[in-house]
Computed example of a mutant assay.
Amino acid sequence: MDLTTPVPPTRSDAPLKVAVILGSNREGRFGPVVADWFLGRAAGHPGIEARPVDVAETEPPGARDAGGVPLLAWADAFVVVTPEYNHSYPAPLKSLIDRHFAEWQAKPVAFVSYGGVSGGLRAVEHLRQVFAELHATTVRDTVSFHRAGALFDDRGRPKDPGPVDGAAKRMLDQLVWWGRALRDARTRHPYGS
């Protein structure tokens, strides 16, 4: 073997492809601020290749990404960025989830939530039940922004980044662990076979 020739990464070493799903399409939504912040954290995490998926831009059934791949099919793992509306999550997010089935199976899902007093945590609890039914594995740790509008400056940066950056790192570490383990398992033995 020529040691000067780089060895291509094995499947288990390949970057984890993470779809970061922005779950609200409301006019004047705060979600893009939270999603942009999170995408910055994901970009700095080794082993992750993150792409945004915005429910406001993916409403038609059969939507595909810029490369023509069916929406979400390319992802090894998911992060759902969701607000809390009426003690639950938004209807466009439910629609996106329900339009897909195999894409979620045997893959990890993590959550970044935002809202008022609860910080979107009630939405996350509802989503955990939905993803369990779809045979997905949810990551235990989350990132939650209570009274989110007051926590970011006018440039979209957290006013006190330490705690939320730490929470994002812990969650991403768990997502990478689960994502790699489940990707390797699906490669060895396809789920449901």
Results as ranks from 00 to 15, higher is better:
residue 118 S to R: 07
residue 124 V to E: 12
residue 98 D to H: 05
residue 94 K to L: 03
residue 79 V to G: 05
residue 7 V to H: 05
residue 127 L to K: 04
residue 60 P to V: 04
residue 70 P to K: 14
residue 26 R to K: 13
residue 64 R to V: 15
residue 125 E to S: 15
residue 68 G to A: 13
residue 66 A to C: 04
residue 9 P to G: 07
residue 23 G to E: 07
residue 133 E to Q: 10
residue 139 V to E: 01
residue 173 D to F: 08
residue 16 L to N: 10
residue 118 S to N: 13
residue 171 M to H: 05
residue 144 S to T: 06
residue 107 K to E: 06
residue 157 R to P: 00
residue 129 Q to G: 14
residue 46 P to Q: 09
residue 4 T to S: 12
residue 138 T to F: 00
residue 47 G to A: 10
residue 35 A to Q: 15
residue 151 L to G: 03
residue 22 L to G: 14
residue 22 L to M: 14
residue 126 H to A: 15
residue 108 P to I: 13
residue 63 A to T: 14
residue 134 L to W: 06
residue 91 A to T: 03
residue 171 M to D: 11
residue 173 D to P: 09
residue 64 R to F: 01
residue 84 E to V: 00
residue 149 G to K: 08
residue 6 P to Y: 01
residue 121 L to C: 08
residue 38 F to L: 15
residue 165 D to T: 04
residue 48 I to P: 10
residue 65 D to M: 07
residue 63 A to F: 01
residue 193 S to D: 12
residue 181 A to T: 15
residue 143 V to M: 00
residue 49 E to I: 03
residue 20 V to G: 03
residue 168 A to R: 06
residue 29 R to V: 04
residue 120 G to D: 06
residue 176 V to F: 06
residue 143 V to A: 03
residue 179 G to N: 10
residue 160 D to P: 00
residue 77 A to F: 01
residue 191 Y to S: 11
residue 88 S to H: 12
residue 24 S to W: 13
residue 189 H to R: 14
residue 17 K to I: 01
residue 51 R to W: 10
residue 145 F to G: 07
residue 192 G to F: 05
residue 7 V to L: 09
residue 117 V to E: 14
residue 142 T to P: 00
residue 183 R to Y: 07
residue 100 H to A: 07
residue 95 S to G: 01
residue 72 L to C: 03
residue 96 L to Y: 07
residue 186 R to N: 10
residue 47 G to T: 08
residue 5 T to L: 14
residue 59 E to I: 01
residue 50 A to M: 05
residue 137 T to Q: 07
residue 79 V to Q: 04
residue 112 V to S: 09
residue 67 G to W: 00
residue 61 P to W: 03
residue 63 A to I: 00
residue 54 D to V: 11
residue 150 A to F: 09
residue 16 L to A: 07
residue 9 P to I: 02
residue 19 A to P: 09
residue 49 E to W: 09
residue 20 V to E: 07
residue 100 H to K: 12
residue 83 P to Q: 06
residue 169 K to P: 00
residue 2 D to I: 00
residue 101 F to W: 12
residue 30 F to V: 07
residue 60 P to A: 10
